[in-house]
Design a protein around this nucleic acid. Structure first.
Length: 872
RNA sequence: GCCCGGGUGGCGGAACUGGCAGACGCAAGGGACUUAAAAUCCCUCGCCCGAUAGGGUGUACGGGUUCAAAUCCCGUCCCGGGCACCA
């Protein structure tokens, strides 16, 4: 064998050493990763004289292994980071770990590993995987949110929020996940189920910590109209979630009582048609108003509704039910007595928990009124029609003319809305009011693996915040985990028992921890100053780096993380800690990575490696091919990035993710596609090494016309490609078309005749290819760049700019249509006069065929593009 | 039900402000090289007729605007996502 290699090497021309013959990704990738690391190539340093660019990808939860979603997300980010760096920006590109959370605790219960050990092991594994991908992170800024040096500052921010009334505790009905044994914020409930484990959420009364996000509802909403760098669908989702509606709060006096029932309505124009009142079963007046002989019935009703879970109450076919309290209130504008009902569809959490019912103009009220035989009055008439309560089959909710509404009769209802609001305010019956669907953010979690909430309860002094000097409140390590649940913190005596910082008496610690979304709401600020010990935020550093210029992550966080982060940034701004009010200037939401599922009738979901030739490896049954779905462990339609890297290398993995589809769309996994990406890299490798001897000889291009024609067309291709790739990355994140453009250039170089006569232009082409590919396949590009004779890393070279002169074409190919159908193609001088183009078009043989003998109505000439001859 | 996306060859996807539909890649077929295979290279490739000329037809479906529509407008169907008694 050694003899063979010797002979083989000896047979090679002197400019080839043999090593470069074959592209071996593992060798190339390790080599350059070591060089980048030794050179601190991606270290970011503040420098006010340079333009900064903050590029951020959503940090991962350290589950243990990266998945294809990470590979895609971080490959996209790395393209932008490397591109911006080559463009001369001072790029900060950090990475860290969203390290608190439930899986660590579950591992502790299931496998007896302490969450901290489990988490840090996972971080080490995943970090090694990310490093193997060659992402250009500044690892010196790495953060793990479970590190006391991180959550210390979160506790401090909490104390400051407490001081400003932005954090508070209240007893309320919360969403309880029986599986996770903790509460969830409203945003974390999806279709009545836990966002993480999909168990049904139950209502539960608990004392909970809340953040006053509702104080910022208006600003959070207003800003969405100015955030031009965010995808519109995400902004719409946030607006819907905030759910602003405008209307009036109106007081209805209770008959024979001093009490008043306050309602919120957006339809004060229908006030004259309010014929009964609907209260939520949880409304404080519900029992209070009930007359003695209806009490039993009402109590039964309330008890029954309370027991029903949220799923049932929000399900599609939920029967509208109610009960009469026996009490009446008075319509403040008509003086009419209105029965007070309890209705199961009225929510205590929205508005005031009481609804003025206008059955003629609200569908729910209509159904309810029909069912319980309640009175109806029409107050809005549609144009050209006369509604009567007896004959209506549905509520009328469209615009119309006011009737039965006293002085407002005859107005259109939109005008009446304003007039009635004025009237109510003048008479002190009601006021204009804005209502939001957004609720305060419940942040208490009854879990161990999270940031302790720095509060102490003292029998004498009550609730006492932990003094700043005593921070951090460190998570104790010696706790016990029980499968049946219960917070390990609450059971940890050494943690719970403390002394009151105010009076010194024995006291208890708060044992709830923060929702892990709190950590991810400000980590991007800490990246700017990860080692700062003077406070959570080093203002100088943060003011330099913030805002994030480009944020990249999955759309599944559209309302959760992205709304919380916006809120938190505004809070920190109002605490004087940061200057910006919006954290993320531009947002890119990438699609999911999908793959078809495979199922065995006997063994269920199958991993790709469990299937051989369409059959289950275990039993030989035919594997059923399912539809393409998001890669997930539960459906086993996953591909392990490590296997992929081992087989093809990181650069191929990156290239495939970027080429197969644009970032916003879902990415369909394709083994063939990966092979295609790998084949392309090999092709480029070969074309560079095959021509190296030409390029490295410093001779110029020949001057003969034939060679010059090749030079011109090659240079045109080169500079067109530079332009296209630059614009595709910069303006559209269309990496797939950028890569396609480079492929075309490679094809053009490969097809160019007589390359040996124009080594200079050939060199220009090869260098352009390598430079343009660098953001996508950096190890590969480094290796070829050095092969092309550059001593300096390609990372340090500048992004190529295109030469407009090279793009100039003497002739243009113009399409000739007759009646809109292509009948010929002609070459005309660039920017030729319309009349000339027209004449050349008419002279085309095939065109003549279709024009001859017919009357020409019109000739449309689009310069440099198209001629359309319209004939009769 | 309401609000967003989307529907283009056998497949992933191009076509940026209306101007050659199908770039680029994958798959497939044919050929070259090879004892053979892999790799590589060359050719073909929406569908129908025809010969490789050329013609017809074609961007979910039905209408419309326009010299010209995948692109704009109206209506219908299907797929994906978000919200859903929000008063």
């Amino acid at each position: 064998m050694p003899v063979f290699i010797f002979i083989y090497k000896a047979a090679l021309p002197p400019w080839r050493s043999g090593m470069e013959e074959r592209y071996v990704p593992a060798v190339v990738e390790r080599k350059w990763q070591e060089i980048w690391s030794a050179d601190h190539s991606f270290r970011a340093e503040e420098n006010p004289t340079r333009n900064k660019f903050y590029l951020l990808e959503m940090f991962p939860y350290p589950s243990g292994r990266i998945h294809m979603g990470h590979v895609r997300n971080y490959s996209i980010g790395d393209v932008v980071a490397r591109f911006k760096r080559m463009q001369g920006f001072n790029v900060i590109h950090p990475m860290g770990w969203d390290a608190f959370g439930m899986p660590a605790e579950n591992a502790a219960i299931e496998r007896g590993i302490h969450p901290a050990i489990w988490t840090y092991e996972n971080i080490a594994n995943m970090k090694a995987q990310l490093m193997k991908m060659g992402f250009s992170y500044d690892w010196e800024r790495e953060i793990a949110t479970c590190d006391p040096n991180y959550y210390l500052w979160e506790q401090l921010i909490f104390l400051k929020m407490l001081g400003k009334g932005l954090a508070y505790k209240k007893r309320s009905a919360v969403n309880w996940c029986p599986q996770c044994l903790t509460v969830l914020a409203n945003e974390q409930v999806e279709e009545g189920c836990c966002w993480r484990c999909h168990s049904e959420v139950e209502p539960k009364e608990l004392e909970q910590w809340f953040f006053k996000i509702t104080d910022y509802a208006q600003e959070l909403l207003d800003e969405t109209y100015r955030m031009s760098g965010w995808p519109e669908p995400v902004l719409i989702m946030q607006r819907n979630w905030i759910g602003r509606s405008t209307g009036c709060e109106i007081d209805f006096p209770v008959a024979d009582s001093a009490k008043r029932i306050r309602v919120f309505t957006t339809r004060q124009d229908t006030l004259f048609g309010a014929t009964f009142m609907s209260l939520a079963p949880e409304h404080p007046f519900a029992l209070e108003l009930t007359v003695a002989d209806r009490r039993a019935e009402v109590e039964t009703f309330i008890a029954r509704i309370r027991k029903e879970d949220k799923i049932k109450r929000t399900s599609e076919d939920y029967e509208k039910e109610g009960v009469f309290t026996g009490a009446y209130c008075v319509n403040p504008v008509t003086g009419q007595k209105m029965p007070v009902m309890l209705a199961n569809f009225v929510l205590m959490e929205y508005g005031t928990g009481a609804v003025m019912a206008v059955p003629t103009h609200d569908q729910r009220d209509f159904e309810f009124a029909r069912k319980y035989n309640l009175p109806m009055t029409v107050v809005i008439q549609p144009p050209g029609e006369e509604l009567a309560p007896e004959t209506m089959t549905a509520a009328y909710t469209e615009p119309g003319t006011m009737v039965n509404s006293g002085e407002f009769n005859g107005l259109d209802n939109e005008t009446a809305k304003e007039k009635i609001a004025d009237y109510l305010e003048r008479r002190d019956i009601g006021v204009r009011k804005v209502n939001f669907r957004l609720r305060d953010w419940g942040v208490s979690r009854q879990r161990y693996w999270g940031t302790p909430i720095p509060i102490i309860y003292c029998d004498a002094c009550g609730m006492v915040p932990v003094p700043e000097r005593d921070l951090p409140v460190i998570l104790p390590e010696d706790v016990e985990f029980h499968p049946e649940g219960g917070s390990p913190l609450a059971a940890c005596a050494s943690f719970v028992h403390t002394t009151c910082p105010r009076c010194g008496a024995p006291a208890r610690r708060e044992t709830d921890t923060f929702d892990t979304f709190v950590e991810s709401s400000w980590y991007f600020l800490r990246y700017a100053c990860p080692h700062y010990t003077g406070g959570p935020i080093d203002k100088g550093a943060v003011d330099y780096w913030m805002p994030v210029d480009q944020y990249i992550g999955g759309v599944e966080h559209a309302v959760l993380h992205l709304l919380y982060s916006r809120f938190y940034t505004k809070v920190l701004r109002d605490l004087g800690l940061v200057r910006v009010g919006e954290p993320f200037k531009n947002l890119l939401t990438q699609g999911m990575v999908c793959k078809e599922t495979q199922k065995c009738p006997r063994h269920g979901w199958l991993f790709p490696e469990d299937v051989a030739e369409g059959k289950c490896r275990k039993c030989g049954s035919e594997a059923i091919l399912g539809r393409k779905e998001k890669m997930s462990k539960s459906k086993k339609n996953v591909v392990d990035p490590d296997v992929l890297i081992g087989q093809y290398g990181a650069d191929t993995a990156r290239l495939f993710c970027l080429f197969a589809s644009p970032p916003e769309k879902d990415l369909e996994w394709s083994e063939r596609g990966v092979e295609g990406a790998s084949r392309f890299l090999n092709r480029v490798w070969r074309i560079v090494y095959e021509n190296l001897h030409l390029v490295s000889s410093s001779s110029g291009d020949l001057e003969d016309p034939e060679t010059q024609a090749v030079v011109r067309s090659l240079r045109k291709a080169i500079h067109q490609t530079i332009k296209k790739v630059t614009e595709d990355i910069e303006n559209r994140f269309q990496f797939n078309t950028a890569i396609a453009a480079v492929m075309e250039l490679v094809n053009a170089v490969s097809a160019a005749p007589n390359k040996e006569r124009c080594p200079r232009t050939l060199g220009e082409a090869l260098e352009a290819i390598v430079l343009l590919l660098n953001p996508f396949v950096p190890h590969f590009a480094e290796e070829l760049w050095s092969a092309l004779g550059h001593g300096e890393s390609v990372e340090k070279s500048t992004w190529p700019s295109w030469d407009e002169r090279a793009l100039v074409e003497e002739q243009k190919l113009v399409v000739v249509q007759v009646n809109g159908k292509v009948r010929g193609k002609i070459l005309v001088p660039t920017d030729a006069a319309d009349s000339l183009v027209r004449d050349i078009a008419m002279a085309d043989a095939n065109v003549t065929r279709f024009v001859e003998g017919r009357e020409i109505h019109k000739v449309v000439v689009i310069p440099n593009r198209l001629v359309n001859i319209v004939v009769g």
